[in-house]
Computed example of a mutant assay.
Amino acid sequence: MRKKLLVATVVGVAASVVLGAPAHAEDTIVTLTVDATGGLSITVPATANIGHGVEGASVSGLLGPVTVLDQRSSLTPNWTASVISTDFVTGDGSSGETIPNINVSYWSGPATATAGTGTFTPGQPGPANQQIINVPRTAFSKAGGTGNNFATWNPTLVVNIPPATVQGTYRGTVTHSVL
């Protein structure tokens, strides 16, 4: 009987040492860094041909997909894409062979694809909202949410050909940028 009592006492003392409060404790604060996988970028088609028309008419066509890719891994990944056009010229433009950019309009239309959280908003949701792009205009924007995201849209360009415009192939530059 004495052996059993001695074993029970030793086990009880060991349990109180293991289960009891530690004599001293230290905390380690652990940190880690989540890096952004990239930055904020925009891609556009290199070229677009929107068709042909006659003086006094309008020519319109799709530019092709425009995509904003936000890989900043931000807590507030807001961005605004803008668009502006140059004049359209044929030849060297010195003989009045110019369609001024006041005749160039744009509408973004809805997104064709998005990913990420937040609100994606077209600058001009439909043809009734088209804007002259002789000055920078909002093409698309994103607000709210967190983390990486992207939006793609296929905008329409409208060029009003003024009366007395000479025959030729006119070229202009439509520039998209994102901040």
Rank of each mutant, 00 (worst) to 15 (best):
T138Y: 01
F140K: 11
N129G: 12
G123I: 05
T67A: 08
D70E: 11
L157Y: 00
T33N: 10
K142T: 08
I29W: 00
V17D: 11
P100G: 15
V89F: 00
T31Q: 01
H52C: 08
V18H: 02
A164I: 14
Y106P: 04
S41I: 05
V158K: 00
T98G: 03
K4E: 15
A164S: 14
S105P: 08
I42R: 09
A57Y: 00
S141A: 10
F88C: 06
V66T: 09
N160Y: 01
D27Q: 01
T98C: 04
P136T: 12
N149G: 13
V44T: 15
L157I: 08
Q131T: 08
T152S: 11
I161M: 09
G118K: 03
G53H: 01
P110L: 12
G38N: 14
A111T: 14
S141H: 03
Q131W: 00
T28G: 02
A25R: 12
S95D: 15
L157R: 02
L179Y: 02
T33E: 08
A81H: 03
P65S: 15
E55P: 11
F88K: 10
A128E: 13
V159L: 03
T146K: 11
A113F: 07
L6A: 11
F150L: 14
I99S: 09
V158G: 01
R137L: 06
A111G: 13
V54A: 12
D87F: 07
P155V: 09
T31R: 03
V135G: 02
I50C: 09
P127I: 07
P100M: 12
A164D: 15
T173W: 00
A21C: 05
V17K: 08
T98S: 14
A23P: 02
P127E: 13
D70G: 12
P163I: 12
P155H: 03
P162S: 07
H52D: 14
T67N: 10
G91A: 04
I132K: 04
S141F: 00
A111L: 10
T86K: 00
F150I: 05
G144R: 10
D35T: 02
V59A: 04
P162H: 06
T28P: 00
V11T: 11
A111E: 12
V44Y: 09
K4H: 13
T121G: 05
A115M: 09
S94A: 15
I84G: 04
N78H: 06
A139E: 01
Y106K: 05
L69T: 15
V83Q: 07
Q71L: 13
